[in-house]
């Protein structure tokens, strides 16, 4: 049975991913900055572990992977769902907010993937890394410059780590959700005007439930995607096709 670490497993896409990987038989480490949220996800799953992690902190990421190895003996996959967003016009945005978004979304993705890859390389086997990019890795979103920058960064981070780690048999792919029903987008989706605007750019005409992103992550952490590495995989209901 494979061991999978999911960061940001306390809610949204991370929680749905933890549940789906567990349902197919993986032993799942549910990691979140909020331990109580992580426990809530892990509590409903057989053979899952909840850990607290601040992905922007390298020692916290190392501890998370150590905990995984200690409990389950190995690490085969990591899915880096931990991410934050804050809106604000570029000329008004604070340095503190900018740093925080880059620290969690971009640096945190690298730090958590790095810790997991080290464990895989040290144990002499390959594995899979799935990073959460966004359609905003490719196209802009007014008022979300820091978020878009962080997700653009995740795309090139993932593509380059795919090159660094191919020789170790570690595949790295980047999932790019469009509009998803998560706590992050709950406020916008609850506003009828904003929702209509978002759906205008979504040819399938509906937001995705988090499970529809998790199912793609499950594919990318399975042998069915054996020849895919460094791939950018939009799961966006056609948004980029119609941009």
């Amino acid at each position: 049975m494979a061991v999978a670490i999911v960061t940001g497993a306390g809610s949204g896409i991370g929680a749905a991913t933890a549940r789906m990987l567990s349902a197919r038989g993986d032993r799942v480490v549910c990691a979140d900055v909020r331990l109580d949220f992580a426990q809530q996800t892990a509590g409903g799953l057989p053979d899952a572990l909840a850990v607290e992690v601040d992905v922007s902190d390298s020692s916290s990421c190392e501890r998370m992977v150590e905990d995984a190895v200690h409990r389950f003996g190995d690490v085969d996959a990591i899915v880096t769902c931990a991410g934050i967003e804050k809106h604000g016009a570029g000329h008004e945005f604070s340095e503190e907010d900018f740093d925080r978004i880059i620290d969690v979304n971009l640096k945190g993705t690298w730090l958590s993937a790095r810790s997991a890859a080290r464990a895989m390389i040290n144990r002499g086997h390959g594995g899979t890394v799935v990073m959460i990019g966004s359609i905003n890795s490719m196209v802009g979103n007014p008022g979300a410059s820091a978020y878009c920058a962080s997700k653009g960064g995740v795309l090139m981070l993932g593509r380059t780590l795919a090159l660094d780690w191919a020789q170790y048999g570690i595949r790295v792919n980047i999932v790019a959700p469009g509009v998803v029903n998560t706590p992050m987008s709950a406020k916008s989706l609850a506003d009828p005007q904003k929702r209509a605007k978002m759906m205008e750019k979504t040819p399938l005409g509906r937001p995705a439930p988090p499970e529809e992103i998790a199912s793609v992550i499950a594919f990318l952490t399975s042998d069915a995607s054996s020849f895919m590495t460094g791939a950018y995989v939009p799961v966006d209901g056609g948004t980029l096709a119609a941009w």
Partner: peptide, 23 residues
């Protein structure tokens, strides 16, 4: 995978499976 329900929210995309060739 692209024909399965698991990929239900993916449309309009060209999925690259190249062992990293394009990187």
């Amino acid at each position: 995978f692209l024909c399965s329900p698991e990929a239900g929210y993916i449309t309009g995309h060209t999925l690259v499976a190249d062992g990293g060739w394009l990187l």
